[in-house]
Design a protein around this nucleic acid. Sequence first.
DNA 1: GTTCCGCATGAATCGATAG
DNA 2: ACTATCGATTCATGCGGAA
Lengths: 284, 284
Amino acid sequence: MKTTPNLILGDCQEELKKIADNSIDLIFTSPPYADSRKHTYGGVHPDNYVDWFVPISEQLLRVIKPDGTFILNIKEKAVNGERHTYVIELILAMRKQGWLWTEEFIWHKKNCYPGKWPNRFRDAWERLLQFNKNKQFKMYQDAVKIPVGNWSKTRLKNLSETDQIRDNAKNGSGFGKNISNWVGRELVYPTNVLHLATECNNKQHSAAFPSSLPEWFINLFTLENDTVLDPFLGSGTTAFVAQQMNRNVIGIEILPEYYKIAKESVNDLNNQLPLLQLLSNESN
Amino acid sequence: MKTTPNLILGDCQEELKKIADNSIDLIFTSPPYADSRKHTYGGVHPDNYVDWFVPISEQLLRVIKPDGTFILNIKEKAVNGERHTYVIELILAMRKQGWLWTEEFIWHKKNCYPGKWPNRFRDAWERLLQFNKNKQFKMYQDAVKIPVGNWSKTRLKNLSETDQIRDNAKNGSGFGKNISNWVGRELVYPTNVLHLATECNNKQHSAAFPSSLPEWFINLFTLENDTVLDPFLGSGTTAFVAQQMNRNVIGIEILPEYYKIAKESVNDLNNQLPLLQLLSNESN
DNA sequence: GTTCCGCATGAATCGATAG
DNA sequence: ACTATCGATTCATGCGGAA
């Protein structure tokens, strides 16, 4: 039974306090990056980022189930010619709080646009930090198996490497269908590097991450009817995907304009459920 | 003019002291990972790793030129179900020494070690931490340009005006990336994600990393006749490649058996220079 | 001379067992 | 209780031999 998503307009620092202890199976979020969305979120300065986040992660530690998982999508900015250290300092601070730093996944952004700076290349990856409350946690590895790599040797030899990797892209034209033919063949477990396009399907608003990113972790760490929390909802990608996957959703967003977008996108989903579920099945 | 590689048998902690200040253009090294090569290197315990490395990085800071670069290939182990924090603590410690943490490249290992565990997937990436002495450093970006991939070719073809507008609005920095500038170009700059396979199958000496890894950074950060240092030479991949690329080489290795392998491989190179240069040109 | 198949081999990690 | 060792698990790669 699917419940209506619980989308909350408010400051997550306050709203999280209203959530019960040990009630969340998965937290997936992409907090506002330091100093980037200055005009929208008030712009947390990199030097203050850890102090700003630690009270929030303390609440997250309280509300997550003992066998739940927290996935934090984050990447440090280059400040003054250096990578800033607030992310790695945050890891150390959260461990002091009691979080276990279980793993670090890499999101390799395949299709970011070319760019040039005198002293660095395009940043094509982000961290997906996995934190847990305990060493034992739920993980459904079979839910994210991928086709065995041998196909590159045998069948798709003529295709270029970039073409072969395009299986993750949503624009399932062309080779997407070819790959689906091989899915039934043999499946292997993936690695801790995710190849995903940055493209977002939503035409109106650009999300911070593609829907396949939360989708992958929701599959990996939750079952249907589990509860997914995103304390920095943004335009609502996590909530939309989780709802689509028959998970319970709690989302918190401080900005009315983003909240409105998220709310509408989830409402659309509820109204058009049959169609969208069909599409989702097709894309699998 | 190429000089004979200066390969030194000894403890780099001592041998580094004999190298002149501000004399090295690029340091590329892959130190023994914590607790791994126990049988060979004596196995630095993860908890002691930072204390062990800091005196070495202090020497490296002394010998590197003001506009030189230090690339550190490293990855934390999983200890007790968690990723250990010695790598991120090392970054903080080296910054206190005066190093700038300029960038973090990702080496995505296409063929990583197999295995299955209840709580994690296979580890398919390693860090390539870039440190510099000053904000201004030498970087020859054109030397590592890559042919534009098929994906971006098709993407650029289909690029609509709204796509450009949306992208400019997204980063909002006013640094509008004019995509049309890239149409028709043969070569583009790479990103900070490197996609390489490990060379696990070389008969005699299986290197920790493929030769294309040091090759890429040597191209990026040095010119011919510059000096490359590897204080943990191992089987000598860095020295071999640097010598092949007409760079001066200093390599330090503490273990006689590895030292011997490195020495022989570089000697082979010197004797068969014409052939190997031919091969190297062909592989480019 | 090609292509194909079999096979050994890794910067691994966990859990159990032994001292 | 804490540390050290060992077996089981798993897959991309490149070599060598065979068709």
